[in-house]
Design a protein around this nucleic acid. Structure first.
Lengths: 109, 109
DNA sequence: AAGCTTTATCGTAATATTGCAATTAATAAT
DNA sequence: ATTATTAATTGCAATATTACGATAAAGCTT
């Protein structure tokens, strides 16, 4: 069906999955890394940097923005994107909690 | 097209995206959490615990296994799944490196 | 106002993902 | 050997994702 049964999972599980999905495409990983590197970036620069068509980048940016991980500010005809520090930190805490579960010292089976 | 253009990204970016995609579904998040909690779990128990059909769980387990994050050992008619500690740690390092980028102290735009 | 630049949106095609019923495979139990 | 149990595989339908050309929207520049 292509439709995840979110109702049978906890809010936390669904939220982790949503954030993870955002990082589940290399273009979005690249966008994030570039925003961190430059601490701000105009959409057109990302198009040049990454090498996907402008509508495609715009779509990826929209997803990241809808999740609140980045924010865009209009500056004349262009839009300046950057990391949303507050939400990034919140997301990081949640993901770290998930990733940092203790690995067993002894093999189980 | 539904097909990611992996060739234009770095290996690291593609790898982060692959791992993130694995966590991009709440069922797989739930499976991982359950495996950590019990430090081993038979496939059928996960079916009961999570509430998706057996083939669906089996499919999710296969994805996690293909990535090397979990491993399954046949025990009679059942299969015991557990976290692969070595690969989990490797994956965690890679994801942490990505998540731990310094958030800017000053807003950019 | 007319033209230019930049980004967002729409429409669409191709591919991927999710989920399950039905079946198969493999072992255990009788 | 037959039957029961458990997990994997197959096949398929529904939905989601990715990508881009075409177009629209919004703000500059002259």
């Amino acid at each position: 069906m292509g439709l995840a049964k979110t109702e049978i999972f906890t809010d936390q599980q669904n939220e982790i999955a949503l954030f993870a999905k955002a990082f589940g495409h290399p273009a979005r990983v690249a966008i994030i890394q570039h925003l961190f590197k430059l601490n701000a970036c105009v959409c057109g620069d990302l198009v040049d940097e990454i090498g996907l068509a402008q509508p495609t980048i715009s779509q990826h940016l929209k997803e990241l923005r809808n999740l609140g991980l980045i924010k865009g500010t209009v500056e004349g005809t262009s839009v300046c994107y950057c990391i949303n520090p507050h939400n990034w930190t919140k997301m990081k805490k949640m993901m770290t909690l998930f990733l940092d579960q203790d690995v067993p010292k002894s093999d189980c089976c």
